[in-house]
Design a protein around this nucleic acid. Structure first.
Lengths: 343, 343
DNA sequence: GGCAAAATTGCACGCGCGTGCAAGGCATCG
DNA sequence: CGATGCCTTGCACGCGCGTGCAATTTTGCC
């Protein structure tokens, strides 16, 4: 296997070696094309010895299908996002697509430039996992005839397919869990991010509490992460009426919250404090946390994405919204049902 | 902004609207080409109203530079890998490249198929963050004239650029840290993964201990993750001589280890057990762990990768190995220097 | 064996773009 | 004013591939 300085093998060279026309080579590597078994074999062998690989750039040039799927992401290092990327990229590969990742960080201009790449490479579809790109940027993709799939966003755009999880339902369920645990002083730890899906969890939780005649303290001290949860706990437990039941709209928030409650205030979980998270990231199952939380059905979501892509861009499916149920994951951060106050 | 069903705007259409030749359009969007300010302006305006975007597929077809960089990754959901992906993708974007991610999971065949994509899309370079693809697959990329950058691997291949961190040095340093903390019964928690960089940490640590006249217990009960660390701790602390100083070759291992030691054996860190990790993942700074560890200079590594890529494929730089120093990060999981045994 | 139908093959074109080359326009200088 | 040089522009070609169309070969059938 000699190392040649100059680039790649072309179909022409393979054809010459195999003693056939270049069309034959092309057809050999095209599904559903008509080649006799004989030439096919000759071509494959020549390709093997030469180290030929079809140039997908050239193929996509005329054939419209680049097979490239753009993943628009932010906070890649976050456990939830990382898991999402992991699952989606695997799934895409298994159906013969390939993922390009666009990391939407930085100024609005940078994000716009990054989003432009999406159409520069004629991506078959754009999957938006990030809240960052503005609706107008997404509209740009749409107006270029690209397929857009929005995950857990809430833009009221016509065109993209929306995939959401029932955040509201989970928020209400979280309240019921805390109520059954006998919690009397309820709080919700949210963030200043203000993503629709995050807001839905928060507001549904608060609404459920209000309907039940209870007030809820709300903390919103920063972005959605461990540090914000920690800060929220510091403020919550410095007050006179510290909560005994907290719903954190994210696992990371819950973990920051728990750590501070335990380490800085000596609070015992779940005896003195029940706490619920959201996302079921891997750390939630760690012994130190053992966090009761809600699991997003990432596998099913990825499956659905794949089915959308292989089905092709039939306009029938466009502009539809599919929603999935987050399922509660029981662990030990919520006190078992307490019949103490004969309520 | 009307939604047109049919695909994308071409340079030809822009040219017609602007009243210039297609070449002028092309030159307008090509750096260093010669266009008069007048035509440039006309072209830009026409492009704007039409929503024109250069087709990078076609551009890369002739120009050899696809601007695509393939990231070969496994265990994407792991904090270390996720952080790496985050930093690298950002850096690539900032120098005008774009990342394709290849998730090397599954059977050898699947991995091979995924790696083939690398050359199918004529990637400018392949960055391997994963231990999975065999050297022969990497050789395939090389023989196709692709640039390959190996991170923390140890394949003895001529051709790729290697980027490594001084794992051995860190391993020795870890031993010194534990020794100074007054640890007497030393253990190292490793994994069955057997990656060169992981092995280097382990063996250097053991060697340093041996040179100092000390024996080391070694645990290798599974892959590199939390569960393996937990299992290792269960075995270590069930024995008659439980360790009082542990070096875990990965932060995740250390966290599993700590949690089990504390929760199942009531051991107090760092009073009764000093523990050191490696990678400095975000969780290491969490209150529950406060883990002393080693930080890989990810920023510098990404910077170096970028510099390699923009410098172009000058053969001078090929087949070189660059190494970075992991720096110790002091936290509270190691007992402060104890002068108790007047050693 | 002869003929029609089916399968295979080669040719040529187009996908969208970058760029060398030559022609034309303009300014600068003698 | 004329000559010389530079800047700009258009033309045409090639990048590697898929594919319709027509020519050719093979197959199937009587």
């Amino acid at each position: 296997m000699e190392i040649r300085e100059r680039s790649f093998v072309t179909a022409e060279e393979v054809a010459k070696l195999a003693g056939v026309s270049r069309s034959a080579v092309s057809r050999t590597f095209t599904d559903g094309a008509s080649v006799s078994p004989g030439t096919r074999k000759k071509v494959l062998q020549a390709a093997e010895t030469l180290g030929y690989h079809v140039n997908h750039l050239a193929r996509g040039l005329s054939h419209e299908r680049s097979n490239i799927i753009c993943l628009v992401v932010s906070d890649v290092s976050t456990p939830y996002q990382a898991q999402m990327i992991d699952i989606v990229t695997k799934k895409l590969q298994s159906v013969g697509k390939i993922a390009m990742v666009i990391n939407t960080i930085g100024s609005t201009e940078e994000v716009a430039a990054a989003m432009r790449q999406t159409v520069n490479y004629r991506a078959e579809a754009v999957i938006v996992l990030s809240g960052t790109p503005s609706p107008s940027l997404i509209a740009t993709c749409l107006s270029n005839g690209q397929r857009v799939i929005l995950i857990n966003r809430d833009d009221q755009l016509s065109g993209p397919t929306n995939i959401v999880v029932q955040n509201g339902q989970a928020g209400r369920e979280a309240y019921q869990l805390l109520k059954r645990a006998g919690c009397a002083r309820i709080a919700v730890v949210s963030s200043t991010a203000g993503t629709p899906s995050l807001m839905a969890r928060e507001t549904a939780f608060i609404a459920a509490a209000r309907e039940d005649g209870r007030d809820t303290q709300v903390m919103r001290t920063g972005p959605t992460g461990y540090a914000t949860g920690a800060e929220a706990a510091r403020q919550l437990f410095s007050r006179t009426s510290a909560p005994d039941g907290i719903f954190c709209i994210t696992d990371l928030l819950a973990m920051g919250c728990m750590d501070v409650a335990r380490d800085e205030f000596g609070i015992v979980v779940p005896d003195e404090l029940s706490i619920i998270g959201f996302d079921n990231i891997e750390q939630a199952s760690w012994i130190a946390y053992n966090l009761t939380t809600f699991s997003q059905p990432l596998g099913a979501i990825a499956e659905h994405i794949a089915s959308l892509l292989v089905a092709g861009g039939s306009s029938a499916a466009a502009n539809e919204t599919v929603s999935f149920h987050p399922v509660p994951v029981w662990r030990r951060s919520v006190r078992p049902r307490m019949p103490r106050s004969g309520e």
